[in-house]
């Protein structure tokens, strides 16, 4: 058996990068063959070249940069609101079991409510402005995040907590100076995951009653059957996702170097 395929054995960073890029190359290759080869009608799928051209036109003529800025801002605002509530609440629920007992059933119930189903209600409550879009993201992220943080904090090694007690730590010391730092890298990781989900909600929110944003642009393009613009819009979301992911990872490695290789 090839030594490269030993279970759990890491590969060299350079090889990893090459592998990651090859996947993209193959993807574009397949896309190019399907479209330029005439296997798929342009009406259904624009070619890579047409998509790029549509994208350039979007930026030049339709102010797409502003759409991107609006969408990024919505995601950011909704996500920060969700994190600001969910992280402290999750820590409290993980640390203090009566708090967990009080909230857990409700949060588990609320977690299954699809954020997109709230859109009609939210339009009724908050109109079709910014607040409504931000609330969709907030609702979609907050309950997931609470549960994840609770599980993370509950899973902190009890022997670390016991060691802290035998060193004279009291309740607040244990929460602030043991549970919190011990959980921080994993909480950060949970934020990274949930941010990915927040992006799916924002597009859904923008498909209904928006006048700006990437999602709105995609719906607009659909009216003119412009698959190039649609695909470009979807692509931009992916690229932004990739960049935030890399930023999160870099920041995580920077903030919590001690957690490396665990």
């Amino acid at each position: 058996m090839s030594p490269l395929f030993t279970p759990l054995k890491p590969v060299a960073p350079a090889l990893r990068t090459v592998l990651g890029i090859s996947c993209f190359v193959l993807f574009f290759l397949g896309w190019g063959i399907a479209t330029y080869g005439g296997f798929v009608k342009p009406l259904f799928l624009a070619s890579p070249g047409d998509t790029l051209a549509a994208g350039i036109a979007l930026f030049r003529e339709f102010g797409f940069a502003e759409d991107i800025a609006v969408t990024v801002w919505r995601v950011f605002a909704g996500f920060v609101m969700a994190a600001a509530l969910a992280v402290p609440l999750g820590i409290l629920m993980g640390a203090f079991k009566p708090v967990e007992g009080f909230f857990e059933a409700f949060v588990s119930f609320a977690r299954y409510l699809p954020a997109s189903a709230f859109i009609p209600l939210l339009i009724l409550w908050a109109g079709v402005g910014e607040l409504q879009k931000i609330l969709v993201i907030f609702i979609g992220s907050v309950f997931q995040l609470v549960i994840m943080v609770t599980v993370i904090v509950s899973g902190i090694r009890t022997d670390l907590v016991e060691a802290a007690y035998t060193l004279g730590a009291k309740r607040d010391g244990v929460v602030l100076r043991v549970l919190l730092p011990a959980a921080a890298p994993q909480i950060f990781e949970a934020l990274r995951l949930v941010l990915g989900w927040a992006w799916t909600y924002v597009i859904v929110a923008e498909l209904v009653g928006a006048s700006r944003g990437i999602g709105h642009m995609i719906i607009d393009a659909q009216r003119f059957l412009d698959t190039g613009q649609m695909i470009f819009g979807i692509f931009v979301i992916g690229v932004i996702g990739l960049i935030t992911d890399l930023l999160f990872r870099a920041l995580n490695a920077r903030l919590f170097p001690w957690a490396k290789g665990r």
């Binding site: 090694r157 022997d159 060691a163 035998t166 060193l167 004279g168 100076r177 919590f256």
Partner: peptide, 27 residues
Amino acid sequence: PGPDRGMVFQSYTLFPWLTVRDNVCFG
């Protein structure tokens, strides 16, 4: 539990986010 009875455990219980010096400073 209290700081008048110091304990060393069988498992490694140093706080991984603190340096050696800060671990010793913890109490």
